[in-house]
Nucleic acid binder design. Structure first.
Length: 864
RNA sequence: GCCCCCGUGGCGGAAUUGGUAGACGCGCUCGACUCAAAAUCGAGUUCCGCAAGGAGUGCCGGUUCGACUCCGGCCGGGGGCACCA
C-alpha cells in the first residue's frame, strides 16, 4: 500500500467509477425516503472560481451524508444561462451570446466535475435552451390566462445618448456606463406579475419556514412591508388663478374606491384626492400635503404650468434605484392649491409636488407632519412651513420645541384637541374610527411590495410569448407555436435590443385575426428562469414544464444553499411562482424550499500597481514597480482577485481543496482564501491516509493489540454523534474540528481492536468531505463496494455518556479552582467539595459565604 | 437614505445558547530525525508578570451570583434596496 495518497491518479479513477455505476442518480422509485439537496445554480460567467467550489462542496457533503443515511438523494446541477454578461461579451468580443454561454458551460461543467461532486448529471439543463424556456413561456401564458400577468407603464433608466434602457448596474454615478450621459427615468409599457396578490400569504408563510435563517425571514418581512394606517381624503380648498371644477360630488358615502384618483390619468382637476398615512395620530401636526410628480393632479396642473412641467422633468433626472431616489435632495413645488384639513374645515394646508413621494407606494400622496417625521421636518425647514409638536414623551415637554431632529419616540398626544392625552396607539385608533364614522377616510393596509416587472429590453433572455395586434391588442402565442425561439442572426453593433432591430423576427400574423402583427420584443427577467428551475430538476418531461405527481414527490427542496445576496429577490420570486402555480392548480406545493442556508463569500487580497491598475496576486509578486496591498474583498473579475480552483486541484487534489473550503470559517460567514490553509488540508488528507494504510497493513481480520481501548471507543462514538449533528446543521467547520480531534486521538492511541474500528469509523465520517481519499482507503482496507454507498456509522448511546465531569469553582463569578466529580453528583456534595477547596478558603478568609450557587455537572459559585 | 448581518489571540475560528473564554486549524518558537532540505514526530504559544497574581471577547453603560452570550447607546466592516446574477 502506498505511503502517500496520490490524488492526481486517484481522483479521476474514482470519478469514473461513480459515473459508470451511476452512483449519484436519483432513482425516485420510492424504495427509500427522499432528500432533495440543491445549491443555487451558477451563471456561466466563464470559469469556476473558488466561491462556486465552496457553495457546491457544502451541498455535496450534505448530499453524500444523506445518501449514506439511506436516502434517495436528488442533487442536480444546471445553468442559469440567460443574462447581461453574455450580451456584453457579444459587444466586446464579437461573439454570439449563445456561443459564449455554451462554451462557458462546457468549461465550468468540466471544472465542477474535477471536484468529484455527487451530482446527478443526467438532469442537467441550461435555461437558455429552448427546451427549457419554451416551457417557461407556457407557464407564463398559464399565469397570463389566470389574470396574474398585466401590462402597465413603468419607469426605466434611460440613456439619452445611446437611446437605450440601462440596467441599474449600468448606471455609474448617475451616468450611462458607455455614453457617460446623465441618466433619466423614462416610462415604458411593461409586463408585470401580480406578486402583490400574494403579499399576505407570502408574509404569512414566512412564519412556517422554521428551517430558514431568521435574518432572511426578517428581510423578506420588511421587504413585503405590511403597514396598517389610514387612507383619507383631502378636499381642495382653492385653485389660484384657475377655475375649480364645479362637480365635486358624484361620490357616495363611504365609497372611497369610487373616489380614488390614484392611478387613473384625469383630464380635469378633481375636487379631492387620497393620502395614506401610518401615523394618523399626528394629523393635527400636519403642515402640508404633498403628491408625487407622477400623481394625476400634478400632471393636470402641469398642462398649463411651465414651471411645474420643468420641476417634474427635473424630478425625472437620475436613475430608478431606491438608493438614488432616497438620497436625492428633497425638493418640492408649491402648487398654490390649498387642501382642507379633514378635521377642521377652516384649516387649510399648502399642496406641494415633492420628489420624495413615490407613486408606487400608498396613494402617491401624503400629508406632512414635520415634528414627527425626519423627512417631513427637513422639507418644512427648507420651505418655511410650521412645525407643531403633537406627541410628547411627558406632559412637561408638551411645548418643547422640535430642533433638527423629529421626535419619533413614544408618548402622549398634545396640541391635538380631542386626542390630547391619548397614547399614540389609542390616537391612531380614535382617528381611524372618526374618519370611518364621518366618511372621509378608512383604516387600511398597504404594502411596500410592488408587482414584479418582468419585461427586459434585451436579447439574451426568454422571449415573452405575446403578439401585439393593432386590432386585437396583446394576444397570447398559441401553445402549439411554442417555443418562441430567439433568432440566431443578430447584431450587437448598435446599443439597444437587437430583437427590436431584427428585420423579420418580430413580424408575424395575429393569431386571432390573422392580420399583420408584431411580436413582443422584450424578454423575461432572468429571475423568472430561476423561479421554477428546481421544479424542472425534479421532473422533466418533454411535452410539459414538469410532471405534477413526480414534482410533488420531490418537492419542496429539503435543503437549499446559496449566497445571502439572494435573500430577498430570488427567494421571494421563487416563493411567489410556486404559490402562483398552486393557485392555478398546476402544482400543489406551498413553499419551494423547506430548509435554506445562506453561505458567505470567499474573499481574497487585492493588489494595485502605482497607477492604480489591479494586479493578480501572482503579478503583484513578480511586479517590478511599487505594489499596494489593498483590502481583502469579495472575489471579482474586475479586481483581479479571483482564484481559479483548477491549478490548485491539480497540485493538491480535489479532497484537499474540498476540506479547506469546509474548514475554519463558519459556512455562513465570509472565508478568506489563503494558500497556507490549503497546505494544512493537504497534510490532513495524508494523515488520514497513513492511519488507514497502517490499519490495512495490520490486517483487520486479525486485529492485533492488547485488547479493547474504552477511551478510543468513547472518542470514536462521540465523534460519530458530533459530526452527524454538525453536518445536519451545516456547521461544517465544527465537523472538521471533530474529525481533527479524532485523528489526533487515534494517532496517539496504541494498536487495538478499538483503534482499528475507530479508524474505519473515521474513514466513513470523512467520506462526505474527502470522498476520493475515502474510496481509496475503503478499497485498501478490503471493504466491499463503494463507500459512497456505505452506511453512516451508528453511535452507541452507552458510549456517549460521561462518567466524570470537571466542575468549575468560582468565587464571586471568578474561576478559582476546578474539581472532578462523578456525573450527576448531588448539589450538597458539590457545595461541600467546593467549600473544601484551599483556594476558596484562602479568598473567603474564614468568613462564611453569603450564598452558594450550584449548577449540577457544571459549576459552583461561592458568593462572599 | 432605508432594511439586515458581523466584530473573540499574530490569523481563521470554538464556547452545549446565561455557567471553566480561546476547542480545532494556520502561523510562529524550541527540540528530535537528516550531510542538508522537505516530509514527519514531540513540546510550547491570549496579553502583562520571574512568580504570586492581574487584565481580557470593537467602545461606553446597564441587568445578573455569573455576560462573548441579554438590554441601551456609540464606533468599525459587510450584504441587499426591485433591470447584476
Amino acid at each position: 500500500m502506498a505511503a502517500r495518497f496520490n490524488p492526481l491518479e486517484a481522483d479521476a479513477r474514482w470519478q469514473k467509477v461513480w459515473e459508470e455505476q451511476g452512483t449519484f442518480h436519483a432513482s425516485g422509485d420510492g424504495a427509500r425516503p427522499r432528500a432533495y439537496v440543491l445549491e443555487m445554480f451558477p451563471y456561466p460567467s466563464g470559469r469556476i472560481h473558488i466561491g462556486h467550489v465552496r457553495n457546491y462542496v457544502m451541498g455535496d457533503v450534505l448530499a453524500r451524508y444523506k445518501r449514506m443515511n439511506g436516502f434517495d438523494v436528488l442533487h442536480p446541477m444546471g445553468w442559469d444561462a440567460f443574462g447581461m454578461p453574455a450580451e456584453n461579451a457579444a459587444m466586446e468580443k464579437k461573439v454570439h451570446p449563445g456561443e459564449w454561454t455554451w462554451s462557458n458551460i462546457d468549461t465550468m461543467r468540466a471544472q465542477l466535475k474535477l471536484m468529484g461532486l455527487a451530482i446527478d448529471w443526467t438532469r442537467e439543463f441550461a435555461t437558455c435552451d429552448p427546451s427549457y424556456y419554451g416551457h417557461e413561456q407556457a407557464l407564463f401564458l398559464d399565469l397570463y390566462e389566470a389574470g396574474l400577468v398585466y401590462r402597465k407603464q413603468s419607469e426605466v433608466n434611460w440613456d439619452p445618448v445611446d437611446m437605450t434602457v440601462l440596467a441599474n448596474e449600468q448606471v455609474i454615478d448617475g451616468r450611462g456606463w458607455r455614453s457617460g450621459a446623465p441618466v433619466e427615468r423614462r416610462k415604458l409599457s411593461q409586463w408585470f406579475l401580480r406578486i402583490t396578490d400574494f403579499a399576505e400569504e407570502l408574509l404569512d408563510g414566512l412564519g412556517r419556514l422554521d428551517q430558514w435563517p431568521d435574518k432572511v425571514r426578517l428581510m423578506q418581512e420588511n421587504w413585503i412591508g405590511k403597514s396598517q394606517g389610514l387612507r383619507f381624503r383631502f378636499d381642495l380648498a382653492s385653485v389660484e388663478a384657475k377655475e375649480r371644477p364645479s362637480t365635486g360630488s358624484g361620490r357616495t358615502e363611504g365609497s372611497l374606491e369610487a373616489q380614488s384618483v390614484r392611478a387613473e390619468p384625469v383630464e380635469a382637476l378633481p375636487s379631492s384626492f387620497e393620502v395614506f398615512t401610518t401615523r394618523p395620530d399626528t394629523i393635527f401636526g400636519a403642515s402640508f400635503a404633498a403628491i408625487s410628480p407622477d400623481h394625476p393632479i400634478a400632471l393636470v396642473l402641469a398642462k398649463d404650468n411651465d414651471a411645474l412641467t420643468a420641476f417634474i422633468a427635473e424630478c425625472k433626472q437620475g436613475g430608478t434605484t431606491a438608493a438614488e431616489l432616497e438620497t436625492a435632495e428633497k425638493k418640492g413645488f408649491d402648487t398654490g392649491i390649498r387642501v382642507i384639513h379633514p378635521l377642521d374645515p377652516d384649516w387649510s394646508l399648502p399642496l406641494y409636488v415633492a420628489n420624495f413621494v413615490l407613486m408606487d407606494y400608498g396613494t402617491g400622496a401624503i400629508f406632512g407632519c414635520p415634528a414627527h417625521d425626519q423627512r417631513d421636518l427637513d422639507f418644512a425647514r427648507k420651505y418655511g412651513l410650521a412645525v407643531t409638536r403633537v406627541v410628547a414623551p411627558s406632559p412637561e415637554e408638551a411645548d418643547e420645541p422640535i430642533g433638527d431632529e423629529a421626535y419619533s419616540g413614544p408618548g402622549r398626544l398634545v396640541n391635538s384637541r380631542f386626542l390630547d392625552g391619548l397614547t399614540a396607539e389609542d390616537a391612531i385608533r380614535e382617528v381611524i374610527a372618526r374618519a370611518e364614522a364621518e366618511g372621509w377616510g378608512e383604516g387600511t393596509t398597504v404594502w411596500r411590495l410592488r408587482d414584479w416587472g418582468v419585461s427586459r429590453q434585451r436579447y439574451w433572455g426568454t422571449p415573452i410569448p405575446i403578439v401585439h395586434c393593432d386590432a386585437c391588442g396583446p394576444v397570447a402565442v398559441p401553445r402549439d407555436q411554442l417555443p418562441v425561439v430567439l433568432p440566431e442572426d443578430i447584431d450587437f453593433e448598435t446599443p439597444g435590443n437587437p430583437l427590436d432591430r431584427h428585420p423579420t423576427w418580430s413580424k408575424v400574423d395575429c393569431p386571432d385575426c390573422g392580420g399583420a402583427a408584431r411580436r413582443e420584443t422584450d424578454t423575461l427577467d432572468t429571475f423568472v428562469d430561476s423561479s421554477w428551475y428546481f421544479i424542472r430538476f425534479a421532473s422533466q418531461p418533454g411535452d410539459a414544464p414538469f410532471g405534477r405527481a413526480e414534482a410533488e414527490r420531490w418537492l419542496p427542496v429539503d435543503q437549499y444553499i446559496g449566497g445571502v445576496e439572494h435573500a430577498i429577490l430570488h427567494l421571494l420570486y421563487a416563493r411567489f411562482w410556486t404559490r402562483a402555480l398552486r393557485r392555478i392548480g398546476k402544482l400543489d406545493v406551498e413553499e419551494p424550499f423547506r430548509g435554506l442556508f445562506t453561505q458567505g463569500m470567499v474573499t481574497h487580497v487585492t493588489f494595485q500597481d502605482a497607477d492604480g491598475k489591479w494586479l493578480t496576486p501572482e503579478e503583484a509578486e513578480s511586479h517590478s514597480g511599487p505594489v499596494t496591498r489593498g483590502r481583502i474583498e469579495k472575489m471579482s473579475k474586475s479586481k483581479r482577485n479571483t482564484v481559479d480552483p483548477e491549478p490548485i486541484v491539480d497540485q493538491y487534489g480535489a479532497d484537499a481543496v474540498r476540506w479547506f473550503m469546509l474548514s475554519d470559517s463558519p459556512p455562513e460567514r465570509d472565508l478568506e482564501w489563503s494558500e497556507a490553509g490549503i497546505q494544512g488540508s493537504w497534510r490532513f488528507v495524508q494523515r488520514i491516509w497513513r492511519l488507514a494504510a497502517e490499519e490495512a497493513e495490520r490486517g483487520t481480520s486479525t486485529w492485533l493489540g492488547d485488547g479493547e481501548d474504552p477511551a478510543v471507543d468513547r472518542k470514536a462514538h462521540r465523534t460519530i454523534a458530533a459530526v452527524g449533528a454538525n453536518i445536519e446543521s451545516l456547521a461544517f467547520n465544527k465537523a472538521v474540528a471533530n474529525l481533527y480531534e479524532l485523528t489526533n486521538a487515534l494517532e496517539k492511541a496504541p494498536a487495538s481492536p478499538s483503534r482499528s474500528r475507530a479508524v474505519e469509523i473515521l474513514i466513513r465520517l470523512a467520506a462526505p468531505m474527502v470522498p476520493h481519499l475515502a474510496e481509496e482507503a475503503w478499497a485498501a482496507m478490503g471493504r466491499e463496494g463503494l463507500i459512497a454507498r456505505a452506511e453512516w456509522p451508528a453511535a452507541d448511546p452507552a458510549l456517549l455518556v460521561e462518567e466524570e465531569v470537571t466542575i468549575a469553582v468560582q468565587v464571586n463569578g471568578k474561576l478559582r479552582d476546578t474539581l472532578t466529580a462523578p456525573k450527576g453528583a448531588a448539589r450538597e456534595a458539590l457545595e461541600e467539595m467546593a467549600l473544601a477547596s484551599e483556594k476558596v478558603a484562602r479568598i473567603l478568609e474564614g468568613k462564611a459565604p453569603r450564598k452558594v450557587i450550584v449548577v449540577p455537572d457544571r459549576l459552583v459559585n461561592v458568593v462572599s
